[in-house]
């Protein structure tokens, strides 16, 4: 068990290094997110109201996440994938990649949350819940998008195929996130954490079970 965890961490560290060695990709993701937030600001130039706040918040996060996590297998060359195939087990790869994408998307979510609170204003006393919602949302998004990215890379597709395949699978998790955020901002209702955690666990379990079948292809 301990060796399994350390192997997982080494795959993660490898993933982390390769991603950060490539500075353009990280800065590209940041600029993408910031530019879409700024476009939203240009559209409203003031606080857009709770409903629009919630919708825009999650849509921007969804688009930025697809851009960031949807490419995680695509950017790898065929040779590099063969190299991984010899070194790592499939379960380790999907978990490490999902973990990396989760941290990346959570960072994007934090940026998104900061900008939204600064530009469009927030609601008193909801910051902790919003943070936790962003955390759980980033987890669900990363679990789905990492698997979708693997499918797309095997199909020799591009990032737009990742969006086509990823968005429909994300309907349930996004719907729950939007409904929870709305209920929180409008009525101060605490979200249904159990439901969200269960859904996130389901998403991760599904991609963990299904990934080995893609791996050998």
């Amino acid at each position: 068990m301990n060796s399994g965890l350390s192997r997982l961490l080494s795959v993660f560290a490898y993933e982390f290094r390769t991603e950060f060695r490539n500075k353009e990709s990280i800065s590209g993701i940041l600029v993408y997110a910031l530019a879409s937030i700024f476009i939203t600001w240009l559209c409203f130039l003031q606080s857009p109201g709770t409903q629009a706040w919630t919708g825009l918040y999650w849509i921007i996060l969804l688009f930025a996440a697809t851009n960031a996590a949807g490419r995680s297998f695509i950017r790898e060359s065929r040779g590099l994938q063969l190299f991984h195939y010899m070194l790592f087990r499939p379960g380790e790869v999907i978990l490490a990649k999902s973990l990396f994408n989760f941290l990346l998307l959570f960072a994007l979510g934090l940026l998104n949350l900061c900008c939204f609170t600064l530009m469009f204003g927030g609601k008193e006393g909801t910051l902790n819940e919003l943070l936790l919602l962003t955390l759980l949302g980033a987890f669900g998004l990363s679990a789905v998008l990492t698997l979708v990215s693997s499918i797309v890379s095997k199909a020799y597709g591009n990032a737009s195929l990742a969006a086509v395949l990823g968005f429909p699978l994300l309907f349930p998790v996004l719907l729950i996130l939007v409904k929870s955020t709305l209920a929180l901002l409008e009525g101060g209702q605490s979200p249904n954490w159990l439901m969200l955690v269960a859904l996130d666990a389901l998403l991760l379990a599904l991609s963990y079970i299904l990934f080995p079948y893609l791996w050998r292809e």
Binding site: V144, L147, I151, K154, A155, L165, P168, L169, F171, P172, L202, L206, S207, L210, Y213, L214, E217
Partner: peptide, 14 residues
């Protein structure tokens, strides 16, 4: 067939 099968299982659960 393989990719579609993986996607369809995920899709049905979702």
């Amino acid at each position: 067939a393989k990719l579609a099968a993986v996607y369809s299982i995920f899709a049905f659960v979702m």
